[in-house]
Amino acid sequence: MPELPEVETTRRGIEPYLLGRRVEALTVRNPRLRWPIPEDLAIQIEGQCFSAIRRRAKYLLMDIGGGTLISHLGMSGSLRLVSAQTAPGKHDHVDIALDSGMLLRYHDPRRFGAMLWCRAGETHPLLASLGPEPLSDEFDGERLYQCSRGRQMAVKPFIMDNAVVVGVGNIYASEALFAAGIDPRREAGRISRARYQRLAEEVRRVLAHAIQRGGTTLRDFVGGDGKPGYFQQELFVYGRAGDPCKICGRTLSECRLGQRSSVFCRNCQH
């Protein structure tokens, strides 16, 4: 599933090709995504120009005309710029034709993604209750500490809660907890302020580095420019259950937290 670094990589990849460009036509081959594509979307965006390409959590926000086109990549979605002569494939559900002769193409085999519309001045319900961005000044160890008081849930699903902080998905939560030396099974409310400060620093560092490296290569993900990410080779724990820890050499363990697999080192994380 594309996580924050993959979405940010997509945003940076498509932004230069969209800013200032006018939409010539919208083609929807399959409107049945996670939520139906609005029937009047063509009316909203055709003839309008893109003025900004933003990101909030894992949502891409493309300002155009009198509102914002909101896209979520779901489990397997991608947005790419292709030539107008490129024939669509089976899972290419949406094409936005630009005045440059390029197409912004939405590809999604599992159709768990979204393409929604929000009028200017309004806040879409999907964005209304989100916590701070992990790379912003609003996110720090003190916030994690205060939000965690009285919480009995494990720390890993706690930092993956979008009301606490957005965009810390399974891959990067695992990596940040390993770097901070915190067992993902530990009760969130029993972790000290000092350890949360270290964890917040590692969340920021891991995400920033992953963005710099182009995100993590997943089976179904390609970036906006068609290039894969290059962070996967640097993973310490995610997807490495049974392998030796890169720090101490002991075998990595695996458990399930919040219905997700979690890999950790019993020696390095406590």
Score class of each variant (00 low, 15 high):
Val166Gly: 00
Gln146Arg: 15
Pro109Trp: 04
Ala57Tyr: 01
Ala42Leu: 04
Val165Asp: 00
His124Pro: 02
Gly113Met: 03
Gly89Glu: 07
Gly141Cys: 03
Leu257Phe: 04
Leu69Tyr: 04
Gly167Met: 05
Pro88Lys: 03
Gly89Ala: 09
Phe236Glu: 15
Ser51Ala: 11
Ala114Ile: 08
Gly47Ser: 09
Gln146Glu: 14
Glu8Thr: 07
Ile96Val: 14
Ser71Thr: 15
Cys268Gln: 10
Ser262Asn: 07
His91Gly: 09
Leu60Pro: 01
Ile64Arg: 00
Ser253Trp: 11
Gln146Lys: 14
Gly229Asp: 03
Leu116Ile: 10
Ile171Asp: 00
Gly65Val: 05
Phe221Arg: 01
Phe221Thr: 03
Phe158Ser: 02
Arg34Asn: 08
Met115Asp: 01
Val28Ile: 15
Ala87Val: 14
Tyr238Ala: 10
Leu116His: 03
Arg151Gln: 14
His270Pro: 12
Arg54Asp: 15
Gly214Pro: 00
Val237Phe: 02
Arg213Glu: 14
Met75Arg: 06
Ala97Lys: 08
Leu33Ile: 09
Leu207Phe: 06
Cys268Trp: 07
Asp99Phe: 09
Leu127Trp: 06
Leu61Trp: 04
Met102Leu: 14
Thr9Arg: 11
Gly77Ile: 02
Arg22Tyr: 08
Leu19Arg: 10
Gly89Asp: 09
Leu199Val: 07
Thr27Pro: 01
Cys268Ile: 09
Gly101Gln: 11
Pro184Thr: 08
Gln197Met: 13
Thr68Gln: 11
Tyr238His: 13
Ser136Glu: 08
Leu73His: 06
Lys246Ile: 12
Gly65Glu: 06
Arg190Gly: 07
Arg32Leu: 13
Asp63Thr: 10
Ala120Leu: 13
Ser136Ala: 10
Asp161Ser: 12
Leu98Phe: 02
Gly167Arg: 01
Arg240His: 13
Phe231Asp: 09
Arg119Glu: 15
Arg21Asp: 04
Thr86Val: 12
Cys268Phe: 11
Asp161Phe: 10
Arg195Tyr: 09
Leu98Met: 08
Lys156Met: 13
Gly66Ile: 06
Glu201Lys: 13
Arg110Thr: 06
Gly249Arg: 08
Ala120His: 11
Ala128Met: 11
Ala194Met: 07
Leu235Thr: 12
Asp137Val: 14
Gln146Ser: 12
Leu81Glu: 01
Arg110Pro: 03
Tyr196Arg: 02
Leu104Phe: 01
Gln152Pro: 11
Gln48Trp: 06
Leu79Ile: 07
Ile43Trp: 14
Gly239Asn: 03
Val7His: 00
Ser100Pro: 05
Val164Pro: 00
His124Met: 06
Val82Pro: 00
Pro125Phe: 05
Ala120Phe: 09
Gly47Arg: 02
Ala87Gln: 14
Tyr17Trp: 15
Ala52Pro: 08
Glu138Tyr: 11
Phe231Lys: 02
Met115Gln: 08
Leu81Thr: 07
Gly189Cys: 07
Gly224Arg: 00
Arg54Cys: 12
Arg260Cys: 06
Leu73Asn: 03
